[in-house]
Amino acid sequence: MIRQPDGYHLAELNIGRLLAPTDDPRVAEFMANLDKVNGLGKRMPGFVWMMEGSGEPGTGNTENAIGGDPQFVANLTVWEDVASLETFVWGTIHKQFYDRRQEWFELLGDQHFVMWWVPAGHQPDLDEAMARLERLRQKGPSEHAFGWADLKQASKWRDNRCAQVAAE
């Protein structure tokens, strides 16, 4: 099992492809709640940093498209520890949106979520995060890139029996 090194924080990247453009009614409920959910995350104990878009209301991080595809979006955050991220993901309103992700996101065949340790104070960029995800896809879990199943202390993930379905 992977353990948190002293002086390090937990970075996470979650990618997904929206079922429709961000201004389409099919994803309107998701888009309308981005600021609320992201704002909650930023106020959570243990939150450190989030990759931001322009700050335009209702856009969240959706401007950080992947591969030039505006429907392929990324969420990149840093947390003090696993427990902080877990509490946000499964102990807040975020879980309600997580449980409904198939309503707004395509089912991805590839791994779409990765975590890794970063030195305290480091803010990873999308290129670094995508490289970590690719490493996890190609070589499997390691200290360099891992998922919830690789963290012994990730009890809420186990309790929720996360299935491999559409992205967050």
Rank of each mutant, 00 (worst) to 15 (best):
I2G: 05
D6G: 00
Y8C: 13
E12Y: 02
G16I: 01
A20D: 01
A20S: 03
P21R: 05
T22F: 03
P25M: 10
P25G: 14
M31R: 06
A32N: 08
V37C: 04
R43H: 14
G46Q: 09
G46M: 08
E56L: 15
N61Y: 04
T62C: 04
E63H: 10
D69Y: 06
D69E: 13
V73M: 11
V73L: 09
T77N: 02
V78Q: 07
E80K: 13
S84T: 11
S84H: 09
S84P: 04
W90D: 02
G91R: 14
G91M: 15
T92Y: 04
K95T: 03
Q96G: 06
D99M: 10
Q102F: 00
E106H: 08
L108A: 15
G109W: 06
G109I: 05
D110S: 15
M115Y: 09
W116K: 06
Q123H: 15
P124D: 05
D125N: 15
L126H: 09
A129Y: 04
R132S: 12
L133S: 02
L136D: 03
P141R: 14
F146S: 13
W148F: 12
L151C: 05
L151S: 07
K156T: 07
N160P: 00
N160M: 00
R161H: 14
A163L: 09
A163H: 03
A166I: 01
A167Q: 00
